[in-house]
Simulated assay, not measured.
Amino acid sequence: MMHRFAFLLALIASPLAAQDFSADSEAKSWNLYAEVPARFEAKVVDVLCELTGDCPAECGAGTRQLGLIRSADDVMVLPMKNSQPAFTGAAEELAPFCNQVIEVDGLMIEDEEIGASNIYLVQRIKAGDADWIKANTWTKKWAQKYPEAKGKGPWFRRDPRVKDVIASEGYLGLGLEADVTYAEENF
């Protein structure tokens, strides 16, 4: 276990991580602090599999966080979002490419001072000779998965998983009694 953790730290903290991957990137800025356009080739991996050796089929079939092992330097890059406004969707966009080498284009967040390293926002994906595809399908896939959550407003207010957590743990995550106490004291 410790060996795998050291391996991860070596991947993320590699001095090669400072390479410039902005050439030919067509990534659109989000005006985020420390963002840099980054286009590179990488293998899509199940992060938990890489760290622990626990490797279910199909990278966990939608139940695991996915990562990118960059071909140029074997550094693990952590994709945290797709090209949609919410910070969601990266794993969903990458899942069809489990254990495949693909090319990605997006924004890298890098800042030593705040401890951000190899955080990635994937905007486009290219597999082999296929055309680039936009990484923007998360909300459509979510709507197909939860048709009963149809309606207006933000998806997370209608998501049955979120509603279940709120029903059991309250809005504050401290239990239903804490919600009642908070409401009585503040409203």
Score class of each variant (00 low, 15 high):
Ile133Thr: 15
Met2Asp: 10
Glu185Ile: 09
Pro96Met: 11
Gly173Trp: 02
Tyr146Ser: 07
Met108Lys: 11
Gln65Cys: 07
Tyr182Arg: 01
Tyr33Trp: 02
Glu92Asp: 09
Leu48Ala: 09
Lys126Glu: 12
Asn31Tyr: 09
Ser25Ala: 01
Cys55Thr: 06
Asn118Gly: 14
Gly60Val: 04
Arg158Ile: 09
Thr63Val: 00
Cys49Tyr: 03
Ala90Val: 12
Asp129Gly: 14
Ile125Trp: 11
Val101Leu: 08
Lys140Asn: 12
Asp164Ala: 09
Asp159Ile: 06
Glu185Trp: 01
Ala38His: 01
Phe40Ser: 06
Leu66Pro: 09
Gly175Met: 03
Glu50Lys: 01
Asn186Trp: 07
Glu26Gly: 15
Ala42Met: 08
Leu51His: 03
Ala23Val: 08
Gly62His: 00
Ala86Phe: 12
Ile166Cys: 07
Ala127Met: 12
Ala167Gly: 01
Ala10Tyr: 00
Trp138Gly: 12
Glu58Trp: 00
Leu68Phe: 10
Arg39Glu: 01
Glu41Met: 04
Lys134Leu: 15
Phe156Ile: 03
Phe87Ser: 13
Asp20Leu: 01
Lys81Tyr: 05
Leu48Tyr: 00
Asp73Ile: 02
Pro85Gln: 12
Pro79Val: 13
Trp155Gln: 00
Asn99Glu: 15
Leu78Ser: 09
Ser22Asp: 02
Lys140Ala: 14
Thr137Arg: 08
Arg124Thr: 14
Glu92Gly: 12
Glu185Ala: 15
Asp20Met: 08
Thr88His: 08
Ile109Phe: 13
Trp142Arg: 04
Pro15Glu: 07
Asn118Arg: 11
Ala13Ile: 04
Val75Thr: 12
Tyr120Trp: 11
Phe87Tyr: 03
Ala95Ser: 11
Thr88Ile: 13
Asp129Lys: 12
Ser168Asp: 03
Leu16Lys: 00
Ala23Ser: 08
Arg70Thr: 08
Leu121Trp: 12
Ala86Gln: 06
Asn82Ala: 14
Trp132Leu: 13
Glu113Thr: 15
Gln100Met: 14
Val101Trp: 07
Phe21Ser: 02
Lys81Glu: 12
Glu103Ala: 14
